Computed example of a mutant assay.
Amino acid sequence: MQLSMCVCLFSVIVTIGQTNVITGQGEDRARLDLKARVIALENALSTLKTELDAKVASLKCDCSSVGSGLGTLTHQTGKRLLVPATPNKEKPAFYSFLSSDELASTKHHTIPFDVVKTNVGNNYHPNSGTFIAPSAGTYAFDWMIQSTWRGVVYTQLMRNSEVLGEVVADSSHEYEFHSATGVVVVQLSEGDEVFIRTHPTDASTGHIISRPGYRSSFSGWRI
């Protein structure tokens, strides 16, 4: 009985010893694998750093070449190269039309297009029918006039006291509406006033028509 117990105890001790040996070998192998991975990552990072340093050096060289080229061009032309500034304001623009028919027979009369749909910069004034240029530049204007049956309407586009354009909407021989459209591109100075008026000497007759589908309108914008 005692001999059997001794044999069993010896077997347990041997088994524990073998387990410790196997466990120790597994831990050593794991450490070696981890060390190998760390070394591989360090090598990869070193390679990546070398490639990035080379690209940065190449970009610096390219920038230096561009700067040298610009300097040479400036020296040859004797002028500075300037990059155009980006405008920080919207260009003025407006669109307006008459809210209803208006008598056309009054000569030298500014037409107040009183319904404003677009007025970027608020430079068009519907009470007076006048656009005031906020700055010097090139502007485009157009206006469309509808004449009533058996009527004729003479209109002019004005810059201050100067006539820039004229149109005639003539229905004098027809029982139908006729329209006329004018387009003008002009250089304006700051403060110039632009408006539409009836002709100062040629007498218009009837009405300027402005109804849904037949709007008489005035618009303009800076180019």
Rank of each mutant, 00 (worst) to 15 (best):
G26F: 12
I39S: 14
V120P: 05
V83H: 05
S147G: 13
Y175L: 09
R211M: 14
Y175S: 11
N160R: 05
S99V: 01
W149M: 13
A203N: 12
E27P: 00
P112M: 04
K55P: 02
S179E: 10
V21C: 07
G129K: 04
A36H: 09
T74A: 14
V120F: 08
H199V: 10
I145Q: 01
W221E: 00
A180R: 09
H108N: 15
A104P: 01
S179I: 13
G220W: 01
K49W: 10
K91I: 01
E27G: 08
V153F: 05
Y175E: 11
A36K: 15
D62H: 04
R150E: 07
I22C: 07
F94D: 01
T148C: 03
A36C: 06
V66S: 12
K49D: 11
S135T: 02
G213C: 10
P126T: 10
Y154I: 07
P134G: 05
N160E: 13
A40Q: 12
C6M: 03
G182Y: 11
D170C: 06
S64W: 07
N119M: 13
C8W: 02
V83I: 13
K60A: 09
L32I: 14
V120I: 15
N20M: 12
S11I: 06
M5K: 09
G213M: 10
Y175K: 12
S189H: 08
S68K: 14
Q2G: 03
T130N: 04
E166W: 07
S179C: 14
L164V: 03
N119G: 10
D53G: 09
A169C: 09
T15G: 06
L32S: 09
H207P: 00
K55Y: 09
G78F: 05
E27V: 12
A44W: 09
Q76M: 06
S68V: 08
A54P: 01
P84E: 03
I111E: 07
F97G: 01
D33V: 14
V56D: 06
E174R: 07
G26L: 14
S65W: 06
S64T: 13
G17S: 12
A57T: 13
P92Y: 00
C61M: 12
V183G: 03
V12P: 01
C61G: 06
C8V: 04
E51M: 10
S46C: 07
I39V: 14
D170Y: 06
T50G: 09
S58R: 11
H109L: 12
M158V: 08
R159P: 00
V152P: 02
P134I: 02
P200V: 06
G213I: 07
R150K: 11
S204W: 04
